[in-house]
Amino acid sequence: MRPFDYTRATAPQEAAAMAAAGATKFIAGGTNLLDLMKLQVETPEKLVDVTRLPMKDIVAEGDGLKIGALVPNSDLAADERVRRDYPVLSRALLAGASGQLRNKATTGGNLLQRTRCYYFYETSARCNKREPGSGCDAIGGFNRIHAILGTSDACIATHPSDMAVAMRALDAEIETLTPDGATKRHPIADFHRLPGDTPNVETVLSPGELITAVHLPAPLGGTQIYRKVRDRASYAFALVSIAAVVTMDAGKIGTVRLAFGGVAHKPWRNEAVEAALAGETPSAALFDKAADILLAEAKGFGENDFKIPLARRTLAAVLAEATGVSL
């Protein structure tokens, strides 16, 4: 870990201003940042401790909820309103990490988690995300945990968050504060980026821009499922995960939201999949058609080829469960 300057911010605006220039990072839960700093994957020169900022509450806002950026994952998962109205979010959070990590990791930090790509974590390997232009050792290497959708020649890493996948299905919005005092709201759809030629740029955040809250729109109701497939029964990152929110209308699928984890550089959602399902009578054939749309552009890189059939099968099972159809 390189030496750094440490400053405590006392107000959000102050924090944003402190971080406007230089290699500065906000630190809150620290569960991913310190992990990466120890390996010198992250080498900030300045840390702005934001843990004392007043962003720790979950409050009702219209029909929805406003979640402070510092709300720990545990508290968010256990919140009565989240459990009742957004169970897919509770479930996603509970499927992630461990009890200890969820107690520390924050809502804002979770969105900014960096990939678990082995080569990103190993500073002696080539990685365009860690060191732009150096190459990608995951392509042609051991890429079991890597992406099958939205990849580029520069990067095939995945976003590791479970929480963000559920939030993507819920159409959350991310509220930020910029160093010049402006408040912004980013739809989660636009918040994370695909790797393209610049996999080092992972979100739309500009320097110093501080996540202050996440807004959840009005509850969607319906059946909400978060299914995570992984190599251990617990405490492992997703190979494939699916957040689903489905309503039924007289035996037909009403509305449907589907977001996918473990398959792309960002929480993945393809509205065409949902459109193909809405208004239809659920059946194995229909689910297969949905998977065809989802996976039309899917590309395996060898070790992760299995994710394509796995995503197909898991999608069918989730849809069957959500619609009450037995396959």
Binding site: R116, Y118, Y119, Y121, E122, S124, A125, G141, F142, I145, D231, R232, A233, S234, Y235, A236, F237
Partner: peptide, 16 residues
């Protein structure tokens, strides 16, 4: 390179 050289990715069984 031993690719998965940590306890997050070398999967020893957990309690569950």
């Amino acid at each position: 390179l031993i690719v998965n050289h940590d306890l997050a990715e070398y999967h020893v069984p957990v309690n569950a």
